[in-house]
């Protein structure tokens, strides 16, 4: 495992929110944080709520902006620094390298779930038919009933939306996956499916960083844990 190349190398990362609309209050969340994740490895982030676990995932995805340090990810064979990458590079990194499952699905009005899941493949140049077939097989594996495939997920239950989210993040087999509570709204059977999907992903060499509150899920998927250190808040 130690011979596997580093897929993510976070170096001396700082994240502070400055709330200008609230008198410029500063909220430090991460300070001088470093860790690496290798290919084929699943790392579980741990720590009390508010420690900055979700913030760290969002920083790696480029959804939040770092105040200092570097976030290197292996993209097309070279390391790209997410903290300083141009938006154009970030779009390419997200299309081909970084998959992210958030806790909530941002619903696009009127787009059927199978199209949502097939879209990442189509954007990478897969033919529409082949992309839909692949999307269908992932939805099937996640036990999303076929009658829901042609419906926009706006009216779906939390668990159904979460499975659409997981399906669209996993369908294109990206080399790095960031998972924020992927099993939070799922029943035991579907939790087991997601566990097996995560294991398949690491077996094909994907590097995974996740937040798994469920202890059994964490034990089943994580190769190791990384405790996100709590930053002392200035009064």
């Amino acid at each position: 495992m130690t011979d596997a190349p580093a897929m993510i190398a976070v170096e001396e990362l700082d994240k502070t929110f400055t709330l200008h609309v609230q008198g410029g209050a500063r909220i430090p969340v991460l300070s001088d944080l470093s860790f690496t994740v290798s290919a084929g490895e699943c790392v579980a982030l741990t720590g009390p709520s508010g420690a900055g676990k979700s913030t760290l995932l969002r920083l790696i995805y480029g959804n939040y902006k770092a105040q200092g340090g570097r976030i290197l990810v292996r993209h097309d064979g070279a390391m790209v620094d997410i903290a300083s990458a141009s938006p154009r590079t970030m779009l390419a990194v997200r299309a081909r390298t970084l998959g992210y499952v958030s806790q909530f699905l941002r619903v696009v009005p009127r787009v059927p779930s199978i199209e949502i899941v097939a879209e990442p493949l189509i954007r990478l140049g897969t033919a529409r038919e082949a992309a839909r077939d692949r999307a269908a097989s992932v939805l099937q594996r996640l036990n999303v009933p076929e009658r829901l495939w042609t419906i926009a997920p706006a009216t779906f239950s939390g668990g159904e939306q979460q499975r659409i989210n997981i399906a669209s993040a996993l369908v294109s087999e990206r080399p790095i996956l960031l998972l924020d509570e992927p099993t939070a709204s799922l029943d035991a059977a579907n939790r087991a499916v997601v566990i097996s999907l995560i294991r398949d992903a690491t077996a094909r060499g994907a590097a995974i960083v996740g937040i798994f509150h469920d202890r059994d899920v964490r034990a089943a998927v994580a190769d190791r844990e990384f405790a996100v250190p709590e930053v002392r808040r200035a009064a």
């Binding site: 070279a78 990458a85 590079t89």
Partner: peptide, 17 residues
């Protein structure tokens, strides 16, 4: 703590030129 990869950060991957 810098990784060995640190020297090889590619600011503009070839496909984005």
């Amino acid at each position: 703590m810098r990784t060995p990869e640190a020297a090889r950060v590619d600011p503009s991957p070839a496909t984005e030129t």
